[in-house]
Amino acid sequence: MTVLLSERSQVFDRADAYAVSNYVNQHVGSHCIRLPPKGRPQASISHRTFSSLDLCRISYGAPVQVTSAALETIYHLQILLPGHCRSAARGDEKIYRTGEVLLINPDDPVDLTYSADCEKFIVKLPVRLLENACLEQHWTLPQQGIRFVAEKHELSSMSGFVPLLSLICHEAENEADAEVGALYERIVAKKLLAMLASNVLRVIPKREEAGGFEAVRQFIEEHLRSEISVEQLMTVARVSERSLYLLFERHVGLSPREYLRQRKLERVHAALQVTTARSVTEVALDHGFAHLGRFSEAYRKRFGELPSQTWRRQRNGCAPGG
């Protein structure tokens, strides 16, 4: 079995198990542990953060039960190195052995019991990373979120995945720059979606059936003088609210409301530069800016001058800066 993370990443070595558990709670995921009533097991942990991923290798040195209500905003990919693990969440019992992989969904309750000789390697992935990877493939995000099928996976069947993790550990330990980290985390997310069964429908919709960002952008341009709600944009894009925010972030780097405000400001700016512009107040109100003080400040930050200055320059026939 490939060793993932070297001694350079070691945080605790043969330490108190509860100290290791506290560290896990801070960096890897909220949980509780139950150890045998007798003895002082010696636990070890190695850990690295790499972009939005957390990489962690843990052994507790004794049989240990790990429980958690749910991880909520993260996925846990766990690889069993030596030893074995029993999963008993939701009454569905499974035994995982050396070289097998389990993936814990964000809403899954956790009830795992590890053997005394067990060592596990964990990759912690934020929900957002998997959803972005799904959008990049132009697959439709399930409204209830991405869920991987609760089944055992043989590491040997996940072609090229261990070498990829080994390379990521190497890059993390050598403090690769943020651009490299972002590239690797996207590769991990895409490989997991490609290799493991999930509820994602891996079909690209036909153009005439697609909603997506272009349909949303066009809708916004046609209705900039109206009040546009997030619910309307969800309907146009045919996605959930969470997926809508991811869609906007991927295409324009803004939330839907920020983008709406920006486009309204740009439309007002254009309107104030034509001779038919009646007054700043009327143009602002036409585009839904009811609070003129806040509008003027937002306009100044966006264009470097007050809207009244733009309007007066147009009325006086002066070029910017003239």
Rank of each mutant, 00 (worst) to 15 (best):
I146G: 05
R86C: 10
D107G: 08
I45K: 04
S159E: 13
A62T: 11
T113E: 15
S157N: 12
S52Q: 08
R147S: 10
I74E: 09
N105G: 00
S156M: 09
S68L: 02
M158S: 13
I146Q: 04
Y75R: 00
S87F: 04
L130D: 00
L130P: 02
I146K: 01
K152V: 14
D107H: 07
R40T: 14
P163F: 05
R147P: 00
A70P: 00
K124Y: 03
P142G: 10
A43E: 09
I122S: 04
D117V: 07
A43I: 08
D54L: 03
F50V: 06
Q137R: 15
D92K: 13
I95M: 13
H153M: 06
D117Y: 08
D107C: 07
A43K: 06
I104M: 02
S159N: 13
L53F: 12
N132T: 10
L81Q: 13
G99K: 06
Q137P: 06
K94L: 15
P63T: 09
C118Y: 04
L55A: 03
P106D: 01
C85Y: 03
C118F: 07
A89P: 01
Q144V: 14
S115H: 11
E131V: 08
P82E: 07
S115K: 05
Q65E: 15
P82N: 09
F148T: 00
A43Y: 08
D107E: 13
G83F: 10
E119C: 12
K124F: 02
I122M: 06
L53V: 07
E131L: 05
C118E: 12
L80A: 05
P41N: 09
H84N: 13
A116Q: 14
I79T: 01
V110C: 03
E100R: 03
L53Y: 04
S159F: 14
S59Y: 03
Y75P: 01
R40Y: 13
R40G: 10
I146M: 05
S59H: 10
H47T: 08
H76D: 07
A88R: 13
S52C: 11
A133V: 04
S156H: 10
E100I: 05
N105W: 00
S156D: 12
L112R: 01
D111F: 06
A88S: 14
Q42L: 15
K94M: 15
I58A: 02
A62Q: 12
A43S: 12
A150S: 13
I58F: 05
T49S: 15
S87V: 06
F121W: 05
P142S: 10
S44Y: 07
L135R: 05
Q78K: 05
I45N: 08
Y96Q: 06
S156Q: 13
H76L: 10
R57S: 10
S52M: 01
H76K: 00
Q144A: 15
G91S: 08
Y75A: 02
C118W: 05
S51A: 15
V123N: 01
V64R: 04
T98E: 15
E151P: 03
T67A: 03
S87C: 11
P126Q: 01
P142C: 09
M158E: 06
C134K: 03
R57A: 11
I45R: 07
E100S: 04
